[in-house]
Design a binder for these strands. Structure first.
Length: 603
DNA sequence: GCCGTTTTCGGCCCGACTGTTTTCAGTCG
């Protein structure tokens, strides 16, 4: 197995864990954590950088020491420092850090005093009353450990964005109904539109300090609250019956902006901002920007950024991935918004596995403010979805033509979500695909091909002269199925060469392309189709989740295919659909020969 | 362990809450 960035990041994370338990210098630990995060978010392959002899020191947070470790890991697959640390501390001990409330100090204390290494051992010790005997521990901590370990063994951690969104909206409605509450908003990773959410962060302002107490009482004593983790004057945490954790912070209105900024994060963005404030002689906290005791800003987020000499930075960008430098330089992108979408290029009807008729889908799209909607039902290989064969698709084409003659304010585009077969061929005859407005291709089986074969499979599909858009390119299902092992940069480059497009599937279970991949596509100049993959009229609303992900990927209106008016869209699709036959044929021949050689299981 | 138009050494974000203390360390976000 080749070493990828995530492998190096995992090594650095484990080193950080082990160093922490050994009570190492916190800044040394932080250096490993920062490097781990940087590597997992880096758009370039660090192994390739090493092989090309590029200067690793140029990467942020990488100095001579870490550069040497990266080179070692990439070259040998091992890390001597990690091996040493594992000899000094049983590696399993770092698993105890996952227990809420147990940090490095306490884990080390428990390990040394009781010899516990694993969660079951810790649970046994706590139940036997041995934990409270350790210096610094008492009966409450001991009981908490029993609860936390038991819960940890049976709960899952992160939920999909759409789930968190529903819960948060319901809680916010309740909060706003409490007397004294002025504003109540969502913050945290939910507001940043991350694809999954670990806990829900809410922020409220109250009209007087006296109102805080009752608000916190109502929050921690509400229906559906399984446990109260923390109950303070300005901050409380609860666990809902569903297992979701919710944090509420209450601040005065004058601090609303600073608090929203702080509570939205990300942590890395906050740290970078606070350093920036420090450099300018200010102090930034959740109450405002201060110069000495004087508050310079805090009522709105824009005022806080302004006091630091920055324009407003959209929540989706706040990951410390270059947004602060871009803000200073005045080069922040004008991010795409839901209202910019003119159409949707991936939706199903009841002709395959959708719930609604062509007419109902068209009407729903019109009500969503869209000017066009592509009907892309499945092809025949996907029998479970009642996929269309050539005859049924031909009849659907005729029906859509007839329907368009009657529709007003919306145009249905004739498409298909055709299966990409294992060898890269498409699941329907060329002649029929040629009659469509667009061909959306997708993988629905054999997710497990080796990386090279999977990559070639996608590239070969794109070589088809009628191919328009690669749907859900990695086929991940959040929390259920990992992304396929595929060379995404190579696929994106191939799309650019072929004039094809990549989809950002907006379904909250997919969000595929993800944010990082969007940035890669943008970098290659490949337009992205933000598509709902709706299987019912209601699901067209899911486009907003795709917008959030696209914004996290720094995409502007210009980077998105379906922000184009219909005429411009047809022109762009025409580059793939209507190429002059001779030239396309020649290119295709060449590509196909290359691909055939590369595919191991091809004759 | 990294980093630098104040620094190659001395910094490294900042505050709330809890539990176990008798003034604070540890943890978390």
């Amino acid at each position: 197995m080749p070493i990828v960035n995530a492998d190096v990041a995992a090594v650095f994370d484990e080193i950080a864990d082990l160093l922490e338990v050994q009570d190492a210098n916190v800044f040394r630990v932080r250096a490993y954590r920062n490097a781990s995060r940087m590597l997992s978010e880096l758009g370039r392959d660090v192994k390739t950088m090493v092989e090309r002899g590029e200067d690793l020191d140029a990467l942020p947070g990488i100095g001579p020491d870490l550069a040497g470790r990266i080179t070692e890991i990439v070259g040998t697959g091992r890390c001597a420092l990690l091996d040493d640390l594992r000899k000094q501390v049983p590696p399993a001990v770092t698993g105890l850090l996952k227990v809420p409330g147990l940090g490095p100090r306490r884990v080390a204390a428990l390990h040394h005093a009781l010899g516990v290494r694993t969660l079951p051992q810790l649970l046994r010790a706590a139940r036997q009353g041995r934990v409270r005997a350790v210096l610094g521990f008492g009966p409450k901590t001991e009981a908490h450990i029993v609860d936390a370990v038991t819960a940890r063994l049976q709960t899952e951690r992160r939920v999909r964005l759409s789930v968190a969104d529903q819960v948060a909206q319901a809680l916010l409605a309740e909060l706003k109904a409490i007397p004294g509450v002025q504003q109540a908003v969502a913050a945290g990773s939910l507001r940043r539109c991350r694809d999954t959410v670990g806990d829900i962060d809410l922020l409220a302002t109250v009209d007087s300090a006296a109102a805080r107490g009752p608000v916190m009482e109502r929050f921690t004593g509400g229906r559906g609250v399984k446990r109260v983790l923390m109950h303070g004057a300005t901050r409380s945490s609860i666990v809902l019956d569903s297992g979701l954790q919710v944090d509420l912070r209450v601040v005065p209105p004058a601090s609303f902006g600073a608090a929203w900024l702080y509570f939205t994060g990300s942590k890395a963005h906050n740290i970078a901002l606070r350093r920036l404030a420090q450099e300018q002689g200010f102090k930034l906290n959740e109450y405002g920007v201060y110069q000495g005791a004087r508050r310079l800003a805090g009522g709105t987020e824009a005022s806080v950024y302004g006091a630091l000499g920055l324009p407003f930075i959209a929540p989706e960008l706040r990951e410390d991935r270059g947004e602060i430098d871009a803000a200073r330089a005045g080069t922040l992108p004008a991010l795409v918004e839901r209202a910019d979408l003119r159409g949707d290029l991936h939706a199903h009807s009841r002709d395959s596995d959708g719930h609604d008729s062509l007419e109902a889908m068209a009407e729903a799209a019109r009500q969503q403010g869209l000017a066009y909607l592509a009907i892309t039902d499945h092809s025949k290989r996907l029998g479970i979805a009642h996929g269309l064969d050539a005859d049924r698709l031909a009849r659907q084409i005729d029906r859509i033509d007839a329907l368009n003659a009657r529709l007003h304010g919306i145009v249905l585009l004739k498409g298909v979500e055709v299966d990409i077969l294992e060898d890269g061929r498409l699941d329907l005859p060329d002649e029929l695909l040629g009659r469509l407005d667009l061909v959306v291709g997708a993988v629905h089986h054999r997710f497990d091909l080796p990386r090279a074969a999977q990559t070639t499979r996608l590239q070969r599909a794109m070589d088809h002269p009628h191919f328009s858009i690669l749907a859900h390119p990695t086929c991940r299902l959040i929390g259920e199925r990992p992304a396929m092992d595929v060379d995404l940069p190579a696929v994106i480059q191939h799309a650019r060469q072929r004039g094809c497009f990549l989809e950002l599937n907006a379904h909250p279970a997919r969000l595929d392309l993800d944010d990082q991949a969007c940035r890669l596509a943008q970098g290659e100049g490949v337009l992205v189709s933000i598509a709902s993959d709706a299987h019912s009229a209601l699901e067209l609303d899911g486009l907003r989740f795709g917008i959030g992900q696209a914004r996290r990927g720094w995409l502007s209106t210009h980077d998105v295919l379906n922000t184009r008016p219909l005429s411009a869209l047809r022109t762009l699709l025409g580059r793939t659909m209507g190429r002059p036959a001779s030239r396309v044929g020649a290119v295709r021949e060449r590509m196909t020969r290359t691909v055939h050689r590369a595919l191991p299981n091809n004759p």
